[in-house]
Design a binder for these strands. Structure first.
Lengths: 220, 220
DNA sequence: CGGTCCCTTGACATTCATCAACGTCGGTGG
DNA sequence: CCACCGACGTTGATGAATGTCAAGGGACCG
């Protein structure tokens, strides 16, 4: 695991434009990860918090029957590792090659939050953002058909990535998308083809998607 | 909305045994609600945080087609109203008659958290608990059959209620359960009958369930 | 050139939503 | 008191959505 010792400014910028205060950033250790590399182990002691700096990561768990459920896609700016338990309930691994993650020692940040209001507020805000993201996800998993799931996933990815450009880059595989939406790969593929045939989207490549008709996507 | 002016101690105890510090509790306003009464409106300014004192509440949203998706069941001790946005994304209403809710003015508690580490830590902890609960819920909504969903719901209710007694009291209707598990009422009913016939559970009444064979429930 | 993912499509089986009907319980008013 | 009513819960029949199994093509890499 190559440790990057010198945090550089541009990489530390969060998506929302909120940077952790320097005093907190001084505690961060940057790490670059290979695709599939574990960042946080399930059942590991929750001694650190993390933030995605660049690339993408997935938070997931393996089900008893061997299938995988992805809990959350983590994009640059997203914090993770928050838990009420002593140990992490889920594993997190890099979804793309070269993903960079900042690691913050939990205890030290907690102590810092006690005296530094800015740090406390940032943590709360990040936790609230996680809550909002997870709640929005409930709607995606709930009563939606496969094409609807895929459509709202694409819309969410468009909003979360470069601020809503029409061309969406999907850093993850179809398998990842399937496990995220809790449908089979085949269904993802069919839904994608369906959206394409209906004229809602166009595929530049398998991983690059241009949204042609956002209305048609919404209506799915 | 009958306001209860005098907070009484026993009611304020959270399920996990963590009480908000008195200094924070002094800001609380207690309210008793009728079944179905709105506590927090969707698209309402997020000016308050809340905590369920007794009874139960549901956080939900109405889908475009008129169906309802329940995001979270809120039981005594649970905080809600945390959001990263200016407005609440979801409505919350009382699920049982006489539910009592404590309301905390958000800004004042935030200011208090700046100088009172205990308050800041409590808020974080409550937020982390919400995150853990929502993540566990992803698994319930994801790749599970209807009987599996119901089984894990019953297990979770058993754990969350009186500390794991074998007799579970369901404060909510079958319709609530259906909208929570994102399946139809009929399917809930059929799954319940299935579990009953398989000997995993026994029904004292429609709303009182005795777990006979936890293993069989898990194995669903 | 062969191997390994990744993506897509087809055929079939299974689960679940939907529509319909009926039973139960508690409250309310004739 | 009892008949009625509405909300809730259960069961059955049917069709649609999706999982599963199977196969094949394309991109990348050693």
């Amino acid at each position: 695991m190559p440790e990057i010792t010198q945090p550089n400014d541009y990489a530390l910028r969060t998506r929302g434009g909120r940077n952790p205060p320097e005093i907190m950033e001084a505690l961060a250790a940057l790490t670059q990860c290979r695709r599939g590399q574990e960042i946080q182990g399930s059942a590991q002691l929750a001694e650190n918090w993390y933030r995605v700096v660049s690339g993408a990561a997935i938070k997931f768990t393996m089900l008893a029957d061997g299938r995988r459920q992805i809990i959350d896609f983590l994009l640059p700016g997203d914090f993770f590792g928050f838990t009420a338990e002593k140990e992490h309930a889920f594993a997190v691994e890099a979804a793309v090659e070269g993903t960079v993650v900042a690691r913050y020692p939990r205890q030290r940040v907690e102590f810092m939050a006690d005296t530094e209001p800015r740090v406390g507020r940032l943590i709360r805000e990040m936790a609230f953002e996680t809550i909002s993201r997870l709640q929005a996800r409930m709607l995606m998993l709930g009563r939606k058909t496969a094409p609807q799931k895929l459509a709202s996933f694409l819309i969410a990815m468009a909003e979360r990535s470069a601020g809503g450009t029409a061309e969406v880059n999907l850093p993850m595989s179809r398998y990842d998308i399937a496990d995220y939406l809790a449908i089979s790969v085949e269904t993802v593929s069919r839904a994608m083809t369906g959206l394409r045939h209906s004229g809602a989207i166009k595929l530049t490549s398998a991983r690059r998607i241009r949204i042609i008709d956002p209305g048609a996507l919404d209506g799915q």
